[in-house]
Structures are given as structure tokens and as C-alpha cells.
């Protein structure tokens, strides 16, 4: 009987067999898989180099079967710039959270995008600092309670959440900028297509690409995984609109 079985679903070659350390209900695992599938399908694994951030996904290098470097907090786009300029024949991507990219790494991401570095950035936005224990991020929603905003984010003092995709899409330099989400299988299917396109554009040496992925953090949001997906729909999605903001192939680049 087993001889007749055919494989219809398997671990992407780009993912290692290491069990991740992520919390139940966290979508990092799903996003890792989408990145890995994209590398596999575009046949990029053997020339891919990832740049790990500081944040929950700091150990991403343990979960992938491709080369990795581990960046200081926020600096991944600078490392990717250095590597890619030195090895333009390789594929280089960063994987960064919202504290890493939108706070301490704001300078590096804006300038890498503006120079049009031929790199791919996967930007995971869960509206909070995860690894350090749930502090307010630049992306934290108005009124959202965190350990450093126990009465909710006060926009008078902390301003409004930064919409990174929109901010980067204002730059004149051609690039691919999109936002997608992970809260339902339908969203995940759409997100996969966008992530794969981001890597394809790099493979074709076209432009800088950044995909912002809305993600959950049940642990630090203090709710169940199921409630967390609903929380994205109710709170994040109205503010962080999904879609492609800039696409060189649609004349918007």
C-alpha cells in the first residue's frame, strides 16, 4: 500500500529539520515556510544568503538550509547591501521584525530602499516587541497595551503607528513594495505569491523588494491564537491596508 503513495506535500528543501522555538499561534513559522518555498521554487537555495535580525526570529539561521549572517539590531539592510554589492551574483534577503526594521533600523531600510539595492526584505509586523517581552513598537496600535504602554499607546506622546510600506513606497527609486497578511489560509496563499514575486524580481536583477507581513503575537498580546488572528482583522488590517503599493511591472515603480 505504501508503495503506491505519492508525495504531495513535504518540507521545503530550504527549511532545515530543526524544530522552531516560536510560541503557539505565532506566524513566523508560516512566513519562514513561504520564504523557503519561494527559494525552492525559484531554485535559489544554493546561492541564497539570509540576514538574520535581532528579535524573535534571531535564530532563523537554525531553521534554513542556506547560508546566513547574523546582523546587529536593525542593520540587516546594511549588511545585505555590503554583501550584495560584493557578490551581485548571489541572492540576499533580510528577515526583520517591526522593532528591528521600523525603529532602530529605520535609517538602514530607508537608504537601502532608496539606493535600490537588489535585495529582498521580509518585514514581519506584529505591532509589538516580541523577544524582549512585549514592549511598545513604532507599529503598536493606538491604545494598544504593552509593557511600556500599560495604559495603551498614547498618540500624543508616542505618535501614530508607522506604516512602513507606505513610507517606503513614496521613494522615487523603482522598487516592489507590498503588504500581506497571515490570518486565514486565503491570506497566506496571497502572501506566498507576493513573497515569491519579491524573490523573482531579485533573481531577475530588477529592483529592491520589500514585503510587509502582518503577523500575530498571542503571547505578548495576551490573547489566544484564535483571538489573535481576529485581532489582526479587527485592529491591524483597517490601519495597515493590504495590497501591492509599488510594482515596477505595473508601471508604478
Amino acid at each position: 500500500m505504501i508503495n503506491d503513495a505519492t508525495t504531495i506535500f513535504k518540507r521545503p528543501e530550504s527549511l532545515s529539520e530543526t524544530v522552531t522555538h516560536y510560541c503557539p499561534g505565532c506566524t513566523h513559522g508560516i512566513i519562514h515556510r513561504m520564504v523557503a518555498e519561494s527559494l525552492d521554487e525559484l531554485n535559489l537555495r544554493e546561492r541564497a544568503v539570509g540576514v538574520a535580525p535581532v528579535g524573535c526570529s534571531v535564530f532563523i539561521y537554525n531553521y534554513f538550509n542556506c547560508d546566513f549572517m547574523e546582523a546587529p539590531h536593525g542593520r540587516a539592510p546594511a549588511l545585505a547591501t555590503g554583501f550584495k554589492r560584493t557578490r551581485p551574483d548571489m541572492i540576499c534577503f533580510t528577515y526583520q521584525g517591526d522593532g528591528d526594521l521600523a525603529s532602530i533600523g529605520m535609517g538602514e531600510i530607508v537608504h537601502a530602499a532608496n539606493r535600490g539595492e537588489k535585495i529582498t526584505v521580509i518585514f514581519v509586523n506584529n505591532a509589538i516587541y516580541g523577544m524582549t517581552g512585549g514592549q511598545m513598537a513604532p507599529t503598536t496600535m493606538p491604545g494598544q497595551k504593552t509593557t511600556t504602554s500599560p495604559f495603551g499607546r498614547d498618540t500624543n506622546l508616542a505618535g501614530y503607528p508607522i506604516r512602513m510600506a507606505e513610507l517606503l513606497a513614496t521613494l522615487r527609486t523603482p522598487s516592489f513594495i507590498a503588504r500581506c497578511s497571515t490570518q486565514t489560509p486565503m491570506h497566506i496563499v496571497a502572501a506566498k505569491k507576493i513573497i515569491k514575486k519579491a524573490f523573482r524580481l531579485q533573481k531577475e536583477e530588477k529592483c529592491f523588494s520589500l514585503v510587509e507581513v502582518l503577523s500575530t503575537c498571542p503571547t505578548n498580546w495576551g490573547i489566544t491564537p484564535c483571538d489573535a488572528t481576529q485581532w489582526i482583522i479587527d485592529n491591524m488590517e483597517p490601519y495597515y491596508k493590504l495590497g501591492v503599493l509599488k510594482d515596477p511591472e505595473k508601471g508604478e515603480g
Partner: peptide
């Protein structure tokens, strides 16, 4: 700051 980290990546 970016120079240092570009060197790191390179």
C-alpha cells in the same frame, strides 16, 4: 553606522 554594517555583510 551603516558603513560598519555594510563592511560586516561584505
Amino acid at each position: 553606522v551603516a558603513v560598519g554594517n555594510m563592511l560586516f555583510g561584505a
